[in-house]
Amino acid sequence: MQLTEKHKQYWQKNLRLTGILLAVWFIVTFVIGYLARDLQSITILGFPFPFYMAAQGSLVVYVLIIWYYAHAMNKLDQEYGVHEGDD
């Protein structure tokens, strides 16, 4: 099976999206986690910011990351003609 230029572009776009979303994932988890003690003085809805992120904020971001990926990729499939037929 031979891949066309278009196929390669699709995969590149997928890789870029995956990379960006993983970077967001990394920042909300590990960067904020690492700096937790330094961010303690910021308050949000009564919570210290790092506690809020670890208990709720990051979780919301994770849900959004996955929702956005599914949405964007399902659209990209259509755009590049690699989508599956309707069952």
Partner: peptide, 24 residues
């Protein structure tokens, strides 16, 4: 307290990896 949130983060954030790297 806060330190226990490692489980909350770990057991949810892992799904980002499932979604982006493996499931499809």
């Amino acid at each position: 307290g806060y330190d226990g949130l490692a489980f909350v983060l770990g057991w949810t954030g892992g799904y980002c990896l499932v979604a982006l790297l493996l499931a499809p």
